[in-house]
Amino acid sequence: MIFIIFTYALAVIFLLFSFIKDRKKTKTGLKKAWKAFENILPQFLGIIVLVGILMAFLDPETISGLIGQSSGWVGTILAGLVGAVTLIPGFIAFPTAALLLKNDAGYMQIGAFVSSLMMVGVATFPVEKKYFGFKASLLRNIFALGFSFIVAFVLGWVCSL
């Protein structure tokens, strides 16, 4: 919450500065902001509906069932894949992860879940593709998923020390 306020404060301060310095330029800037938003709005809306569908199937209990019960590499890979297709805000994701931990899921699985949840975006792929094209978007997501398993491995190791 505090960071949302921070982002707003930043935007307002810059906007005021900009307005005092040059009204016309500020107007152009706001127009550009609106254009950029309007351009991507259809994709944003699509994602939001798609995420709704995905999360209806993958509610926290299902996620915890998938990740909590299977252990080892299979569990880690599963956790990474579940994280890749889900899109939940951090302030829900981390309490969910903490709950997983209480339910005896391993650090390695949780690490894979948290990392791929944040870095890999299957649901956001259409937006990414619109800016970076298919190849760059696909590669970024593949690298991010692979890296999530490295992170999981390190976390599993460090947290067991």
Partner: peptide, 28 residues
């Protein structure tokens, strides 16, 4: 699904505006 969609929509409407204002200002 509908509940999550409404929730994400709220999130988008709250979080996204200052980001676009900042990018517009950055641009000019």
């Amino acid at each position: 699904a509908f509940e999550t969609t409404v929730y994400s929509l709220q999130e988008m409407l709250i979080v996204i505006p200052p980001i676009f204002v900042l990018l517009g200002l950055l641009d000019v």
